[in-house]
Simulated assay, not measured.
Amino acid sequence: MSRLVVFTDGACSGNPGPGGWGWAVSPDGEPSGSGGETATTNQRMEVYAVLDAIRTLGADGTPLEIVSDSTYVVKCFNDRWWVKWERNGWKNSKKQPVANTDLWKPLIEVVQAGDVTFRWVKGHSGDPMNDLVDRLAVAATPR
């Protein structure tokens, strides 16, 4: 089974403030998903976009490649930050509580249960799919 490439993004108007998230399947942007929250952060929206994409597209075991401009998301998995977070009682390297654990825990669970890889893409650099998911996230931000 070939790996489905999914671009994800989060946006926030103010940080914190109203925010949105979006995801879309490459190369043509379909299917896609988006949503928003009235009071959130950009990082929270980045994580939520990935969680929703995997829950929607990977539930049947479809191999996924998540492409994100969030180093927070990509490094969490590629550099295995989550392993240290769990080992340290959900504290980061500064001994502070890890933000967004209510999203990280289920995201880690679905990533471990599936076949998911992560790749970073530079944001706002002209990548058509990254630009598309940015537009989806911005459009989903509550006004």
Rank of each mutant, 00 (worst) to 15 (best):
V6M: 03
S70Q: 08
G33V: 07
E46G: 04
N78W: 13
L4K: 08
G61Q: 12
C12L: 07
V47D: 02
P16Y: 13
G20Y: 03
L57W: 06
K94G: 01
G14E: 09
C76Q: 06
V121F: 11
D52H: 11
N42Y: 06
K94P: 00
F118R: 08
G10E: 06
G33R: 08
G10L: 09
D69V: 14
N88C: 10
R87P: 00
L103S: 05
G33Q: 05
G36V: 11
D28Y: 07
E109A: 14
A140K: 03
P18R: 15
K95Q: 15
A39D: 14
W85C: 00
R143L: 15
Y48D: 02
G126H: 08
A59C: 11
C12H: 01
A113S: 13
K84P: 00
V116G: 03
A11R: 09
T38H: 09
E37D: 15
V138I: 12
D69A: 14
Q43K: 10
T101I: 13
P27C: 11
L132F: 04
G33E: 03
P18S: 12
L51V: 06
L107H: 02
A59D: 15
F77G: 01
R44D: 05
W85S: 01
F77I: 13
F118M: 11
V111T: 00
A49L: 02
Y72N: 05
V5Q: 04
V83E: 15
W85D: 00
I66K: 02
W104H: 01
T41V: 09
G36M: 10
D9V: 06
G89I: 14
D69M: 13
V133W: 00
T101A: 08
V50W: 01
Y48I: 10
L103K: 12
G36A: 07
V74E: 05
V73M: 07
M1I: 11
G14I: 13
E46F: 06
H124W: 11
D60Q: 12
V133D: 00
D9W: 05
S93M: 05
A113E: 13
L132A: 02
P16F: 11
W90I: 02
G35C: 15
V121A: 15
E65W: 03
V133H: 00
V83L: 14
F77N: 02
V116W: 13
E37R: 14
T101Y: 04
V116L: 09
V47Y: 04
L64V: 03
T141C: 12
P106Q: 05
V83P: 00
Q96D: 12
S26W: 10
V47P: 00
D60I: 07
L4V: 13
R55A: 08
T101N: 03
W81Y: 09
M129D: 01
E30C: 03
